[in-house]
Amino acid sequence: METLEQIKARIEKLLPLTRLDILPNECPAGERSLLVEAGRGVEVGTLLRDDAQLRLDYCSNVTGVDWPESVIKTKVKKKVLVEGVEKEVEEIIETLRSGHLEVVYHLYSMELKHGPVVLRLRTENRADLTHLPSLTPVWRSAEFQEREVYDLYGVIFDGHPDLRRILMWDGFVGYPMRKDYMAPDDFEYEPTPHDEVLELAKKHYPPEVKA
């Protein structure tokens, strides 16, 4: 299979896109992913599926990931004048990474038996702009998996034939797999609590009787 750079070059030649990045991956397996701009997912997907050299006709896995707002600290070496002598000092710069939700698609080819090519689509934020195009018209296997991402993360897929909750019951409010979801408080009876569960169980303990 071609390298990710070759695939990226070919997509850019055929489709004018504002954003198509290759994201690094430091682990030894090193499957890097293609970050595609949110609105053009269907076109990129169709291109990857129908391209003669790739024929990525099998979408194996659709995952939702929650990236809440966080502060990223990067260490930067700067030359600073200290008491008249130039020294190299490490400074920590803090940048605020805005929160977003991400959907990751793993694509393989059953015809040519190669893969994977990893596609990523990101939403603007976690609150109201959580729309992404649905890739169900391209790969039917995304149908149930995108419903699950909607159910558990709250990403709304435009163009999905049947977007409703799949694992939780219909009247459920909230998106359970997000990092800031608070589980309901049913910790009345915990025989062996520790760490966070102890904090939650303590709320149900009777008040201490001070003799």
Binding site: G171, F172, G174, P191
Partner: peptide, 23 residues
């Protein structure tokens, strides 16, 4: 019945009572 985050009621007090004092 299905509530928004949990069942309503979360348990049946006639049948189940949490123990009075923690272990």
């Amino acid at each position: 019945a299905y509530g928004e985050h949990d069942l309503e009621p979360p348990n049946n007090p006639g049948i189940w009572q949490p123990p009075a004092s923690p272990r």
